[in-house]
């Protein structure tokens, strides 16, 4: 049975068990889930904005439109990013969580990849490198957890009986931070210059929700 600590994210509300892989909701993860769902729905439902750019040295301005083909790809990637975030938020298995996290990193590049602007693509390239390097500590953390405790199920890991080594926790946090949190996020700030607000917004939504989730995981372990 589960040993979710009620003093961090609140008591467990509901769980879906696939053998030893569990997905569960606490009040905390339920709020994160709803939030991710709202923004995924927005990415599905809303039209992009038309970015206004001022012509330098005059009163003129022009608006940028996104071609339908690019728009379709961007929307698809944003929805994939939303689904990966939903998965990461409800997952009760450390390895699944890391998988969804790395998928978020990939889809974040995908969201802006269709947009042919040198500056944005350069930033996406740099973001990709940081995210890729960050998967080393991310999966490394999960591997250390499995090697030392013999399980990846959060229900087991959150119990008082199992001590997770500090280095594994640090690696997990470092890995998630590499997907776009504070010290490693400079390229991410630049890729959000791409047009297509509802989709570009998913880049930020996903990294913040992942960070909120990993905080809960690490504190509970």
């Amino acid at each position: 049975m589960n040993s979710l600590p009620a003093d961090i994210g609140g008591p467990g509300l509901y769980a879906v068990e696939f053998g030893d892989i569990v997905n569960y909701f606490t009040p905390y993860t339920a709020v994160l889930f709803v939030f991710a769902l709202v923004f995924t729905a927005l990415a599905i439902a809303s039209r992009p904005e038309r970015q206004v750019d001022i012509i330098f040295g005059g009163d003129g301005y022009y608006t940028k439109d996104i071609e339908p083909a690019k728009l379709g790809f961007q929307r698809f990637m944003a929805i994939a990013c939303g689904l990966a975030t939903l998965g990461a938020v409800v997952s009760g298995d450390v390895f699944n969580f890391t998988l969804f996290t790395s998928m978020v990193g990939i889809t974040n590049i995908g969201i802006v990849a269709a947009y042919t602007n040198r500056h944005v693509l350069n930033a996406a390239f740099q973001y990709g490198i940081v995210a890729m390097i960050a998967t080393v500590p991310l999966f490394g953390g999960a591997a250390i957890i499995l090697a030392t405790t013999g399980t990846l199920s959060m229900w087991e890991l959150f119990g008082p009986a199992i001590a997770v080594p500090l280095i594994a926790k640090a690696f997990l946090i470092l890995g998630v931070m590499g997907e776009g949190m504070a010290p490693f996020y400079v390229a991410k700030a630049e890729i959000t210059r791409a047009p297509g607000a509802p989709y570009v917004l998913m880049i930020h939504v996903s990294s913040l929700l992942l960070f909120l989730r990993v905080t809960e995981i690490v504190l509970s372990m």
């Binding site: 709202v38 927005l42 439902a45 809303s46 039209r47 992009p48 904005e49 038309r50 970015q51 206004v52 608006t63 607000a197 509802p198 917004l201």
Partner: peptide, 10 residues
């Protein structure tokens, strides 16, 4: 008119 309407309000 240039805004992403649903997001703007949401």
């Amino acid at each position: 008119v240039t805004a992403s309407q649903a997001l703007f309000v949401a």
